[in-house]
């Protein structure tokens, strides 16, 4: 069966880079997330918040079909990207991940040099350019992730031989190098010190000009200061499935939430 590539001609007239419609996600028989519908605006930062176990990572992984890698995981409903449902049977998950990149909670650089870490993505995506062009691309990606000045003199150094915060920015640079349209981040700062965290938040603001970003975070201040829109998830006590309580502009969610559970959560009264 020929896999349909994502239509490069598609010109977006919706305001959403990604849109989730009536998504239910199962791990074998267990429904982890139900009735999930929301849009992620283009060139904006969308934060997914909620207590532990409510399905934020599950939803995030469904956005570039990383859940496919988990045996027994199944997604129902639609995730729309460039007018196509990513779960159509003729969509190739590998292609999807080239357009929708991911940064993980734990920095996971390859045990290769910094340079090769960045070059990896383009290389597996059929890079044809010259060495000089690759040098340029590596520099651009590292600059994009605000890491260039710190590592420009040792690009041959192992990606594991730099600090945790630098490793996480290396992972961001690595994701940028394949020039995705959307970047998904699952608690990218949870293992970092406050200064590295701020650096990554500033970086996200920069990146927003060219990319759409979806971030999962446990840190309420981070969601409040570093996102444009917020989606609040909560687990349904009856069937333990996560669902959306409320979503909208971050300011509104944090200052005048419509649902009292949202208010309770962001003011730290449960979760």
């Amino acid at each position: 069966m020929a896999m349909k590539a994502i239509d490069p001609q598609y010109t977006a007239d919706t305001k959403y880079a990604l849109e989730v419609r009536n998504v239910d996600i199962y791990y074998s028989a267990f429904r982890a997330v139900k009735n999930c519908s929301f849009g992620m605006e283009r060139n904006k930062i969308t934060a997914l918040i909620g207590p532990s176990g409510c399905g934020k990572s599950t939803v995030l992984r469904s956005l570039n079909r990383m859940n496919d890698l988990i045996a027994g995981a199944r997604t129902e409903g639609e995730v729309l990207y460039r007018g196509q449902n990513l779960y159509d049977p003729d969509i190739d998950a590998v292609q999807v991940r080239r357009s929708i990149g991911m940064v993980f909670q734990k920095a996971n650089p390859f045990p290769k040099s910094i340079y090769d870490n960045i070059a990896y993505g383009p290389r597996v995506n059929g890079w044809k350019g010259s060495k000089a062009e690759m040098d340029e691309l590596v520099e651009r990606a590292l600059r994009g992730a605000a890491l260039w000045d710190e590592v420009k003199d040792d690009l041959k150094k192992s990606g594991l031989a730099i600090s945790g915060g630098q490793q996480q920015r290396l992972c961001i640079a690595r994701a940028l190098a394949v020039e995705p349209e959307v970047i998904l981040m699952d608690e990218p700062c949870s293992a970092l010190d406050p200064i590295s965290t701020l650096k990554i938040e500033e970086l996200m603001f920069e990146l927003r000009q060219r990319y759409s970003i979806v971030i999962v975070t446990h840190n309420m201040q981070q969601a409040a200061r570093a996102s444009d829109n917020t989606v609040f998830f909560l687990m349904d006590k009856e069937d333990r499935a996560g669902q959306i309580v409320e979503y909208g502009p971050t300011e509104q969610i944090f200052q005048s939430p419509k649902d009292e559970r949202t208010e309770q959560y962001i003011s730290g009264r449960f979760g």
């Binding site: 080239r98 996971n108 390859f110 045990p111 993505g121 597996v124």
Partner: peptide, 14 residues
């Protein structure tokens, strides 16, 4: 570590 596999697959590697 499985994190390395995920990183690679997340970059669109087969």
């Amino acid at each position: 570590p499985s994190g390395l596999r995920q990183a690679s697959l997340g970059l669109g590697a087969t």
